[in-house]
Design a protein around this nucleic acid. Structure first.
Lengths: 190, 190
DNA sequence: CAAAGCGGAGAACGAACGTTCTCCGCCGAT
DNA sequence: ATCGGCGGAGAACGTTCGTTCTCCGCTTTG
């Protein structure tokens, strides 16, 4: 069964995503990805010349997927204030996924942050992208200091992400939304 | 050079703490701990019969140390509101440590949470302890719903912990404190 | 001084890792 | 039909890991 490059790549990334996310990047061997993807080792190494490259591709795809899911939730609302709160509803649906295991970037950073500058960089870029998105939402809502509000909101979000992972419940998203409402009341002009 | 049990144990835990925290638990071999601690492998395995046990001991000690450092900062203030804000000053001094790498429990959970129930449990207990401490501070400050305020404050704290690790700056502690002030203004009776 | 046992240094072992290589069967071109 | 090259399956290689074992010197006791 010969696969064209595109499907082989997709199958490898699907398998890598599931395994890396569930068990962590270091605990998953290339052999496990070979078995799960059905792509031979030779081809796997043609597509991704090293495990490091595969990890990068895994994080890249997570970043894109995450951003598009966030945008989807936010764009379902029109009121600027509701668009901010939609972020926390997105988090809530994310936390409810059966295989939710926290943020892949935080987890990968914890594993490889000190030894792989590339992973550290990707984690920083991912979080910076999120912060900028929040900044734009805050500015659109008329916040007098959008950067500061964005910082406050991202703290709630990141806190909810890790707390939800460790506690195993989606509740932190609800609590984060509550706190966000209080912060918006305090920071947004009436 | 023969060491008594107590010093050997302390040297091993000192080495394990530094190495596990810096590089992650999976990336550090028992040999590295042997070299760094100066304790022979044989003795090391007498003190900690497996790497899993050593990881548990590492997390246990981190938990105790963290709690006592937090209590130290909090107890330096007397005003109930200041005692809550002292939490964020504690975080700030923590983030400024040169080797700061985020929360050992979050990092270990990311690495082993799915495969080691013990690590998952220790992470949950550690975070639950923090949440309870915040709950007591909130109650002492007269919060009408201390549990809820504690949840909001812990989200800010956890968010600051991971953001500081990834960004490499202590700034998130300042921002978290700002947001905490807003939440206290909204939640505490005048 | 002799015998016995404890601890230290590090070799050894079996497994697992990332990566490469070998072999074999299948395909299109002549 | 034959040849050449590509892809798949998985063996192989060198390293590293967690854990155990061997050897040797020191100390303590009679």
């Amino acid at each position: 069964m010969t696969l064209d490059t595109e499907t082989a790549q997709r199958q490898v990334l699907d398998a890598a995503d599931a395994l890396f996310y569930e068990r962590g990047v270091q605990a998953v061997g290339m052999d496990a990805i070979r078995s799960a993807s059905g792509v031979s080792l030779k081809r796997l190494y043609q597509l991704f010349p090293s495990k490091d490259r595969l990890i990068e591709a895994y994080l890249d795809r997570r970043d894109q997927l995450w951003k598009s899911m966030l945008a989807e939730h936010v764009d379902a609302a029109t009121d600027p204030r509701e668009r901010i709160l939609a972020v926390f509803e997105f988090l809530h649906t994310w936390f409810l996924q059966r295989d939710y295991r926290g943020c892949a970037f935080i987890n990968s950073f914890g594993e490889l942050g000190t030894v792989s500058p590339r992973v550290a960089e990707l984690a920083m870029q991912h979080k910076e992208g999120f912060r900028q998105a929040l900044g734009e939402l805050a500015a659109a809502a008329g916040a007098p200091d959008p950067d500061r509000l964005a910082d406050h909101l991202i703290l709630l979000s990141e806190g909810a992400i890790t707390r939800s992972a460790i506690s195993g419940t989606a509740d932190p998203a609800t609590r984060a939304r509550e706190a966000a409402v209080l912060l918006l009341d305090a920071s947004l002009p009436a």
